[in-house]
Design a protein around this nucleic acid. Structure first.
Lengths: 219, 219
DNA sequence: GAATGTATGTTGAAAATTCAACAAAAAGGA
DNA sequence: TCCTTTTTGTTGAATTTTCAACATACATTC
């Protein structure tokens, strides 16, 4: 755990908790780390929502699959980010999504009970954590709304443009990497992969964008 | 306010707060009621996110509009339900949506500061309210994910079917009312209105569904 | 109850997506 | 390095959506 203290310090769940207190806080919260190889399932649809996850290394993807096998990517989780917190906080019986590791990843699981019920020591920080959690869940809400705004567009080009603009804004630059390959981007934008490839090519030819693999540039 | 005590008692924000305590709690939280006529804007995009709203009567709709005027309906809020809580909890400067009254509505606004900062009296219940709020925001998260699952479908028929099935499940019946007219349903499902009407007609002819206005029946 | 406005249904043409199949390029492993 | 696998790009046909225009049904108001 020592080697991931830096990650945990920057985890929004522990905002406002001093370095000294973080260690005791972590001891109090318990938690177990787990390693997942690339493509391995971190949380399977239908499993119990009793834990909140924190990404320590690697990248996770939150996906939904209908029963025709069509995938929808809801989002990604990078080091120091949380996942599964909404299901835990909503007291859901069964988790309705799949979480998979896009690359080798390490994860810290904390039981929601440990967060919900204040402990005897360190209780001052406990309240802070609840507030942080509330903010995190609310912010994830906004991300989902932003995704809705993107996928609400009716054409592949409009969706792609809206997404790229949001990424450029987020990175404060016209040049940035996206966390998706082509198939994943298509599953995020909810469009056909081949159609997406075609649209990207067309926009390149028109001189609107430039890209190579997952690096994009708005011109 | 007296006339709306029943509504407030069933508001999930006050879950676990006894009747006697609710009155003092409300006094402590402050808040102001406001009336909105049908079609009036309750919260305009860009305004400050310093309040949480509770619907006392009527129905509200949460919408987003891009700058071509295309509307996306994110959801509705009925009596005893909250709105705007995600923006307040995420400490957003500007609200990114419009909230409009679909019919004459009354609303109770509570400043987020009053909720975030514990008061001197009634503090036991204050903590309960924070937990309730966390659960509400998390549940709204799930609703957005469910909406994503519906709009992820590629054809109008698939979207409509997925939506109707979710409503049937929610109502525990094959026969139910939906909170949308045709245009609103189209804006929720993110499809063309005329195409939606055509699809509904076709499904009626095929004997799959039956409907009249906003009442639907799955056969 | 007549008139006006709004909501819904219908249609056909244009545009866009999806689908399937394959080619080319890149990545990974032996 | 060679071979295999995965990813990405390309294409054309079929399907579906969108768009515009109009007809009809329903509501509301005076």
């Amino acid at each position: 755990m020592k080697k991931y203290m830096e990650i945990l310090r920057s985890c929004p769940l522990f905002d406002g908790i001093g370095n000294e207190n973080l260690t005791s806080m972590l001891a109090c919260l318990g938690g177990r780390t787990a390693f997942f190889s690339k493509k391995e399932t971190v949380i399977a649809e239908g499993s119990e929502a009793d834990c909140i996850g924190i990404v320590l290394s690697g990248t996770l993807q939150i996906e939904m699959n209908d029963y025709f096998g069509n995938r929808t990517i809801l989002g990604t989780a990078s080091p120091s980010e949380l996942f599964g917190e909404a299901f835990a906080c909503a007291d859901l019986k069964a988790i309705p999504v799949n979480v998979v590791a896009v690359r080798d990843s390490e994860v810290l699981f904390i039981e929601k009970q440990r967060i919900a019920h204040p402990c005897s020591n360190a209780c001052d920080f406990h309240r802070r954590i609840i507030y942080n959690l509330l903010k995190i869940v609310a912010e994830k809400n906004l991300m989902l709304q932003q995704k809705a705004q993107i996928t609400a567009k009716r054409t592949t080009r409009e969706k792609l443009t809206a997404y790229l603009l949001s990424q450029a804004k987020r990175n404060n630059s016209h040049s940035f990497d996206i966390p998706f390959n082509r198939q994943e981007l298509a599953d995020f934008l909810q469009v056909d992969r081949s159609g997406l490839s075609a649209e990207i090519s067309k926009m390149k030819k028109e001189g609107i964008i430039n890209c190579r693999k997952n690096h994009f540039e708005l011109l």
